[in-house]
């Protein structure tokens, strides 16, 4: 399958040519397939945010190229705004960007900038609001009257309303309570399933990643450290821990069980998978 996003030898250097010069991203290669749900993990300072901002053309790479649908996004620098409509980026704490009088107008900001017709804008705003579970009443209230979780969802709707082909979310659940967190992830999952949009999720929570994504890219010091399915990546638990990352709790349980002599697959990363694994073992007269 043809990649929707292809990153080649991407390098980004901050404050180039000054004593403060440092590279946040050094020679990253990454391919994202259409309709894929990709997770990106890496600890603070691993270059995740810098990479994300380059994918939609907010930052111009110091070296290397980014291809969107086979075309270099910087081939026409004047048209970079179009790239931003196609690659939607939801920043960390996006609720701080809300500014309009009503939630409706705020969600309409992106589609309006795209120059769509009023009817189309209205449809997109309502669709996006429905996806994130905002009611009609909330749509016409001030964004500053909403609760923290609702604000976050309104801000995410503002990007979804542009109907980007690739949706990037930078830690969408940071600072939310467990219920708000689950709710947002569920909505993102639904959105991905229904629209078939390519989704890139940046997160610190291994559980979140394990439960949702098809593939994981691990960033470390500006490089791609690992790239594979959750099972492949989490099977290398020791390496992950050595670079200051973690594995899901369930994987830890599986590892502990293995140490005790239970023959479970060490790469399980969801509760459901571990349950299956244990049941199979039991049914087959295993060590359980």
């Amino acid at each position: 399958m043809e990649a929707i996003l292809r990153v080649e030898n991407l390098t980004y250097t901050y404050s180039a040519g000054t004593p403060f010069e440092h590279s946040a991203v050094e020679g990253i290669n990454l391919t994202v397939l259409p309709g894929e749900f990709l997770g990106i993990i890496g600890h603070t300072g691993s270059g995740k945010s810098t990479l994300m901002q380059q994918l939609n053309g907010l930052l111009k790479p110091t070296a290397g190229r980014i291809y969107l649908d086979g075309r270099d996004i910087w081939s026409e620098p004047k048209e970079i705004r179009k790239v931003r409509f196609r690659v939607g980026l939801v920043f960390q704490y996006p609720e701080y960007q809300l500014f309009e009088e009503t939630v409706y107008k705020d969600i309409a900001f992106g589609p309006t900038n795209m120059g769509l017709s009023d009817g189309e804008i209205d449809r997109r705003v309502r669709d996006a609001a429905a996806f994130v579970g905002l009611s009609e009443e909330q749509l016409f209230s001030s964004p500053f009257e909403l609760s923290g979780g609702q604000k976050r969802r309104a801000a995410i709707a503002g990007v979804i309303a542009m109907e980007p082909e690739v949706l990037i979310l930078d830690e969408p659940t940071a600072g939310l309570d467990p219920r708000g967190r689950d709710r947002i992830l569920e909505q993102i999952r639904d959105y991905h399933r229904e629209k078939g949009t390519t989704v890139i999720l940046v997160s610190h929570s291994m559980e979140e990643i394990a439960r949702n994504v098809d593939r994981i890219a691990v960033l470390h010091r500006g490089h791609t450290y690992m790239d594979g399915t959750p099972a492949q990546v989490f099977a290398r638990a020791e390496e992950l821990m050595s670079i200051g990352l973690d594995v899901p709790q369930v994987t830890k349980v599986a590892l502990a069980l293995r140490e005790k002599g239970v023959d479970v697959d060490p790469s399980v990363c969801t509760v459901e998978a571990l349950r299956q694994e244990l049941l199979t073992l039991k049914g087959g007269g295993g060590a359980c």
Binding site: R84, V90, Q97, G110, N113
Partner: peptide, 12 residues
């Protein structure tokens, strides 16, 4: 940060 976020939504 806010500028980048609004640019991501197509602000010009």
């Amino acid at each position: 940060k806010i500028m980048s976020a609004q640019k991501a939504r197509g602000a010009d």
